[in-house]
Structures are given as C-alpha cells and as structure tokens.
Design a binder for these strands. Structure first.
Lengths: 192, 192, 192, 192
DNA sequence: ACAATCGGGACCGCCCGTTAAT
DNA sequence: ATTAACGGGCGGTCCCGATTGT
C-alpha cells in the first residue's frame, strides 16, 4: 500500500514521482489513495512517519557507549538495505522539499543521539580527551549520509555494511586509545 | 546566463525547477534560451559541463601526496562555497535523474583521483600499510559528500571549511604514522 | 455537523471550499455527509436554510416602527457576530453562484421588510414626507451589507455594532424630524 | 485580451472562474496566455492593476471638498457601470482570496481618501462639528460598497447612479448645515 | 544571433460524487 | 450510518515547437 509510494519516491525523488506511478506500483486506484491520504505531500509525510524506527533495535544492547554507537550505525545500514521506507525517508529528507520543515529536526535528532553516545563514551573513559563530541558527531553523521549515497549510486547499497566497517576502521583510531581500540576490534569483529 | 539555471537547479532540484523560474532569474526570454539549449535536460548538462574544474587548482602544488589530498578537499570546499555551478552540479549529480548517465563517471572519477593520490602517498611511505587505498578513497569521498549535504542543510555551508578540517583530524591518525601526522599538522595548520 | 460547512464556506467561499475541508472540520466521513446531502450545492442551500432567523427576535418589540427598524438592524449585527451560519449565508448570497436563484428573493425579502417598517413609520408620522420608503430601504439594506463586508475585512467584525450606530446617526436626521430624532436618541442610547 | 479575464472574474468570481472560460472569452490559446501571465493569480493581479484609475477623473474639479466628494462617488459609479475592469477588481477585492494581501490596502486607501476630503470640508466650515470624519468615511465607503453589490444583484447596476444620489440625499443632512445643503442641492442637481 | 509572441499537447494533482460491503 | 474503494474528469501549468520580427 504505502510501501509502493516509498519505492517510487526512493527511485525518482519527490518532485519527479507521479501519483500515477505510485498507483501503478501499488495496484490501487486514485480514489482509494486519496481516501487515505489527502495529498501527495501527506503521502510523503506518511512514508517518513511510518518507517520502522531502527534506532530502537539496539537499545537493549548492553555494551560500552562506543560499542553501542557502532551497533547503531550497523543497525542503520541494515535498515537501509532492508527497508524501502527508510530509504525513501532518507531521500525525501536529503532533498529538502520543505515537507513540513521536518528535515532540520531529523538531522538534529541524529546529531543529538550520536553526540549523546559520545558523551557517554567520554564518561566511560573510552574517548581521547582531544575529541570534541559535537564535532565528531557531525562528521560521523555526515560520513554515514555520504556512504549511503555513494554506495547506492555505485553498488546499489550491496557493499554498504562493508563500507560502514571501513569507516569505523578509519575513525576509531582518532576517537579512542589503542587499548580500547583493540577491545572493540575483537568484540565487533572489525578486522584490521 | 547559464548561472541562473544553476541557481534555480540548486535551489529546487531538477524536476521541481521550472523554465520560467530560470527565465526570470536570468532575465532572458524563452526564445533566446531555446536557441542555445535544446531542452531543459540539455541545460542541466551544460550546467554540469560548465563548472569550473576545481581539481586543477592545486595541480601545481608541490608537496607530499597526502598534503595534496588535503589541499584538494579544501579546494573542493572552497569551490562549493563560492561557485553556484559546482553546487548545482552536485545537486544534479546526487539526484540521479538519469541525465545522460554521467553520475557514475562523476563519482568514479573522484574516486580514481583520490585513490591515485593515496597510492602515491603509499609509495612515498606516508601511508600505514594497513590502509587500503581503494577503501579509504571510498570513505573519504563519501564523507566529503555527506559533509557538504549536512553542512548545507544545517548551516547553509558556512561551516564547511571547519568541518572538512574536522574530518581530516578524525581520519588522518588512521591513515598515517604519528610522525607524518605531526608534520602534516604544522604544514596544514590542523590544530589538534 | 452542518455548522462546519458554514465555517468553511464563510472562510473560503463556495467554489474554493472543498468537501475534504468540511469533512475534517466536522469530524465526519464522506459517506455520512453524502448520506444527508446529495451534493456540495445541497449543503450550501442547507446552510442558508438552517440559519436561525434573526428577524423574529424583535417581533415582540413594542415601539414605534422606526425604533423597531433600528432594533432590527442591531439584531442583524448581533446575529452576524454570533452565528457562523448567518455569516456563511451572507457570503454565499453575495457571491451569486447561482445556488437555486434564491439570492434575489433574499435581497427582495429584506427590502420588503425594511420598506414595510418605513411605511408604518410614515403612518405613525415619524417620517419626513420627503422620504421615499422604497429608496430609503434600498439604501439602508445596501449600507448594512457594505458595513458588514468592510467591518469583516478591516476589523473582523469586532466593531460592527459601533458602525451600525454610526450609520443610524448619519441617516436618521434625513429620515425624521428633530423632535422624533431626539426621542430616538434617548430611547436607543444613540449619543450624538 | 486582459479584459476577457475581467469579464469572467466579474461573472464567476476568482475561484469559480476557469482558465478555459477566459481562453474562450478572449479567443486566444493557453500557451499565449501563459506567456504573458505566469499564473491565474498573476492574471487577477494584472486585472486589478490595469483598472483605469477613476479617482483621477475629478482632480481638476474645483469646488468645495464636499462637492468633490460627491463627484468622486459619481465618478466611481460611472466607472463601475462602464468599465468591466473596475467591476472585476471590486469583486476580486471583496472576495478576500489572499491575492497579494492587497485588499486591506485597497480599503484603507479608499478610507483615507474619503476622510481626507471630509477633513478638508471641515476646514472649509462645511461640516457639522458633531461629525467624526473617520467614522463618516467608514460608513460612506461601506454604503457605496453595499450599493454597488445590491444594485448589481437586483438591477444589473442600471440604477446605480440614481441610488448613489439617494444615498447622498440621506446622509448629507447629517453632515452639513441647511445652508450648505441647499447650495449643494442646486450645484449637484440633487432634487429633494 | 537574438527577441517576442503564439500555439498546443500533455501531464499531474486533485476533487466530487458513487458504489460496494457491513 | 460508516468505511473503503472507485474513477471520471477537470483545472492549472509546464515544456517545447513554430512563427514572426530585428
């Protein structure tokens, strides 16, 4: 039903997607669609709202904050590979079409979550003192955003998990000490 | 002339941009525009083609390959802040609208350039042997792409330069040895 | 129920009002609405029909005809401020959308009522002989119509009562003698 | 060309008027129309802008302020009868469709003009001291607005001039003294 | 080479009223 | 009386030729 919209939005973007395409993909008729959603924009917002929140997946994870952060990123990558709704939401968020002005809050929410984890890691003594949580969160969020884009464009996201691990291999040495790094490598199976 | 198109494309995206908007941004008439460009798509391709190649800016730079790589990223950030054509090209490339299928080559070209520099750095002995140039280039390109997007969304690109430096501070420790790192820090004025 | 339709009609006008807006203003579903009313036009006619007749409010008023006329105008103003149905009816009547051609009868009915009161006033000797009841009724109805429109546009009808009194202050001297005028002023508390 | 739009807007109102109707009335094609006007709203604004300003008609009139005021009202009535653009503008202004938020300024402009004339009349000693220019202007503007509406609905504006004179006969006694009133009657041929 | 105007085809979003099932 | 689904059709407008003038 609504998943069809996500697919089309993800494939063509908001503006280029036409209602007819969504109709065709979903196999429903115009009237039916407009009974559930008042407008194309409402449909897009529903897509964003309906995405299964991949952030909850690892709340029960009990590990150090840094481990939870890596797990979060992997959970995100999995959601991206698995769930078209998440993919469509990302696309709709990145193209800032002014859909309810929610884009800023989305980015800000991610930033806050990551920074929070970094602060916890700092309290746990897992962070180098030279690291600024705010700046690091910014770079991490950006890198993940970019990875997903490039992986999509070049390899249809098939290599996303490997690339996320590559990212961690490249930034963890700057975030934490050799000792913690070694611990993380074994726990997270991040081969050198 | 063609810069007006870039501005509109950058602001609205390809599909949402209308010829009329470009027309009155440029101050020309429709006849004039359609004399030079056959279609809206041709216009977009011209925007991409016409972007001043910021890659040439640092060819004359004589330094180590790693230094040239950092300089290249900074040059890219500058171009992004300064040149609407570059911004529009990025937007048009990221939204893969099927404009002549040139997106793949674009990404691949960037990847090749960065990898090439990393290989040179390896030959110069500036790279840890654990680093895979291919994978590192991939992550770096992705991170730059993401930084530009997030910086645009959150701060209208005003903090882009600072964020690029943040990125280097976070990945250089994994790329090179402490000694080279210290050298780069002074040469590139990358405070800890 | 039907009041929701009135609100939307009053706010947007007949043509611009959409059924969906009425639906979620009323909190009912489309099926329910189309069970009661055959069409959008039928709904509008129901709004007009259902308006509580403010004319009855002052039938029991026992005073001179002129006093009753002023009271009628005040009653109208009150209804306009209080009752969205009356407001919507006015809007739907003024936009002559061809809703059953009832607009002419509406205006004519108001005209007849006012003229009738003026004729009574004439018989009671309260009217100057130079006054033509027909013409005076026409002007009074028009002025009330206009006052309501302008007051709505400029002050959201909050000053309507005061403006109606202003109107009477400006036309009563032409309608009646100084003596009757003085009597009315005290009775109706129309300060000079 | 643009006059056709005025006719349709005047006949059906903004929302109910369709581009096809205007096209049909004007005898041009869609492409041609959208070359000159970017949107339906732009067309409506053009109609409002293009109306020949009937206010200038009596600037050369040399008489007392009160005489000029009456002349202004008559000029307005003439314009209303003669010029479809003026009629359409009035309709578009009265239906507040949010066309550039110019409606408030329109009403306010008329109010200011009339109040200014009343203030001049006051300085010339032609106004009773009990008259408040502000309030009087408000009522006069409203009455003119209403007259035009009712006259249109009932008699297709054919009796507008006579009704305007009726209005003046009904309000002038409250505005000025017997002596000035007599002078105005002869000068303006306002029979009792 | 450039500009202004006209023409038209096509598309897309959306809205209204109906019809099934219950 | 309500939910859900349906579809015909319309209205705005956009893109792009084609035809003029300069």
């Amino acid at each position: 039903v609504i998943l069809a919209a996500a697919k089309v939005f993800e494939r063509r973007g908001y503006a280029a997607a036409t209602i007819a395409q969504i109709l065709d993909e979903a196999g429903v008729t115009k009237g039916s669609l407009y009974f559930h959603f008042d407008s194309k924009e409402a449909l897009a917002q529903a897509v964003i709202r309906e995405q299964t929140d991949w952030r909850n997946m690892n709340t029960e994870d009990c590990g150090s904050a840094l481990e939870r952060l890596v797990a979060l990123s992997r959970s995100f990558a999995s959601a991206l590979v698995r769930d078209p709704l998440v993919r469509a939401s990302i696309r709709l968020t990145i193209e800032r079409t002014g859909l309810g002005q929610g884009e800023l809050e989305a980015y800000q929410g991610w930033l806050d979550a990551v920074r929070e984890l970094l602060v916890q890691a700092e309290e746990e003594g897992d962070l180098r003192e030279s690291v600024d949580p705010e700046a690091a969160a910014y770079v991490l969020i950006s890198a993940m955003t970019g990875l997903q884009l490039v992986s999509e464009a070049l390899h249809h996201r098939q290599d996303l998990h490997a690339r996320v691990d590559d990212l961690w291999r490249m930034v963890l040495p700057a975030l934490t000490s050799q000792k913690v790094l070694a611990r993380l490598r074994t726990k997270l199976s991040l081969a050198v």
